[in-house]
Structures are given as C-alpha cells and as structure tokens.
C-alpha cells in the first residue's frame, strides 16, 4: 500500500499529494509517469510525476479532478493509502547539452513542466518559464517556478493575473526579442501543445511535447496509448511520453482522447452522486 504523506489543495480543482514510494522516488526522473488506482475497483490512471524526494522516499503527484478516478483519489486524505502506485514509467525527458530552454506549461500541465524546469535549472541551463492559466484562481506553483527560472511569464486567459493572453503570445514575444532557445518544452492541453509546436516550427526551434493519451497498463502491453508521430505508430508508455512536437499528429491525438467522453461524464456524475450521498 502506498501512503499519502501530504495532501494540499492547490486550487479548487487541483490537488497535490506526496506519496510514500521509496523505490519509485529513487529512480524517478522528470518526464516520467506513474499509474495509480485509488481503490481496488478503480481504473488505472497515468499521472506524470510532478516531483520526487529521493531521501524522503516520496513521489509528488498533482492532479486535476476531471473524472471519476481523480474524484475518487481526491476523497483520500493524509495518512490514507492508494491501492496501487506503479512506476516510474516512460522515458525521462532528455536534458543533455541544453543551455537555454523555454518551458511552457498550460493549466495543470504546469505541474509536469515544473520538474523539468527544476532539473534544467540545477544543470545550469538558462530557463524561461511561460505558464498559462484560465484565471487567477487557477494559478499553481508560482513560487516554485520563480525559484527555478531565469524569467517567468505568467499568463491568464482573462487577464485577472499576470499578462492577459495565451502562452503562445508570450513565447513569440520572447523569440522576437532575440532569445535563442536550444529547445522549447511544452506541456499542457493537446490544443496548447499543438499551437506551441506550430509557432516554433515557424522559427525552426526544436520542440518537445509530453503526451498524455488514454492508457491502461502503461508498460507496453495494451497499445491503447498509440499516437502517430512522423507517420509512424508510437506508444506513449514506452516510446514517450515526450515526443518531437513537430512530428506529432495532434488532431488525431485529440480525437482519440474523446473516445470515452460520454462514459466519463456518466462516471463523474455517478461519483458525484455517491459522494453526495456519503456527505448526507
């Protein structure tokens, strides 16, 4: 069993948990993910690792409460245990030889962008972080990004905090100002990654995106997480989750991501009803 040693609400829909998982903490690298099940009958859900502490033996996950499984996870408290927690899965993000990088995080994707920014910073790389949220209430990890970045651009869709606009606006401005990036790393909603990749293609800057498709086993068995990258079928669990943003077929990935939308809506409603009953 995998104990929750810390739980913190980052905003009304995003929660942070530190999980006691010493073996995973020992091996985890930025870009890798875990698969969890809150209860014995829960779905298997992948989550990218947000941080890890090798000495304390903990792995940090940050999740948005979007469906039945994350709702179930959020019912657990400090001291409770997750039923299953397996990883680290996928390939670590490549950081070798990078001198100047723009790290772009959108929404809860910022939680996954953060450990990469942190690692690059610790390696002496110049890090420009561009993080975008819908509004001020949803902003997460601001202090953390400030601590590991040479420059931070905070963007909100409605202008309620930082600068009003999209992450692509800020990125283009930085490029136009003459910043020469070895690489752009974009993590967030597929649509955001698609537009970041379109922009950087124009400027011919290598761009890495972190894909988060539907997955079951996460170890290279089920094939559910397949994507088309450069015309070839790739599996996010063993070939990724990082891929060259200029080669990923984002439209297809978005389509495949909606496969179970109807089911998920029902599941979410069912979970809500169940929780409401428990509260009453």
């Amino acid at each position: 069993m995998y104990k929750i040693v810390r739980k913190k609400e980052l905003n009304p829909t995003v929660t942070l948990m530190e999980i006691d998982a010493p073996l995973i903490a020992k091996k985890a690298e930025p870009g890798q993910f875990i698969i969890f099940r809150a209860f014995e009958d829960s779905e298997r859900v992948p989550l990218t690792i947000a941080d890890y502490d090798r000495e304390m033996g903990t792995v940090t996950i940050i999740f948005q409460i979007v469906g039945g499984a994350t709702m179930e996870l959020n019912t657990l408290s400090e001291g409770d245990c997750l039923y299953d927690f397996v990883g680290p899965l996928g390939r670590p993000s490549e950081t070798d030889g990078l001198k100047k990088v723009a790290v772009v995080g959108g929404g809860v994707g910022s939680a996954i962008a953060y450990p990469i920014a942190k690692k690059l910073h610790s390696l002496g790389c110049e890090v420009h972080s561009i993080v975008g949220f819908r509004n001020k209430d949803l902003v997460i990890l601001e202090d953390e990004f400030n601590a590991v970045s040479d420059k931070v651009c905070m963007m909100t869709d409605d202008g309620s905090y930082g600068t009003k606009g999209l992450v692509t606006n800020a990125l283009e401005e930085l490029i136009k100002e003459g910043n020469e990036y070895d690489e752009v790393i974009a993590i967030g909603p597929v649509i955001m990654m698609k537009f970041v990749a379109q922009l950087t293609k124009k400027y011919n800057i290598k761009t890495i995106v972190s894909m988060n498709p539907i997955m079951i086993d996460g170890t290279g068995m089920c094939g559910g997480c397949r994507l088309t990258v450069g015309g070839e079928t790739k599996f996010a669990c063993v070939d990724g989750p990082d891929f060259d943003g200029h080669l990923v077929d984002f439209d297809e990935a978005m389509h495949r991501g909606t496969m179970y939308r109807e089911f998920e809506t029902h599941a979410r409603e069912a979970s809500c009803n169940l929780l409401n009953k428990e509260v009453k």
């Binding site: 089920c222 094939g223 389509h255």
Partner: peptide
C-alpha cells in the same frame, strides 16, 4: 487504424 473504435485485442481483452 487510429480511428475511435479500433482496438488491439490486448487492450480490448484487458479492459
């Protein structure tokens, strides 16, 4: 092959 409704047998049976 990447249309919605194309499964590998592994995925279908695992589910």
């Amino acid at each position: 092959e990447s249309l919605k409704g194309v499964y590998s047998a592994n995925e279908y049976l695992t589910r």
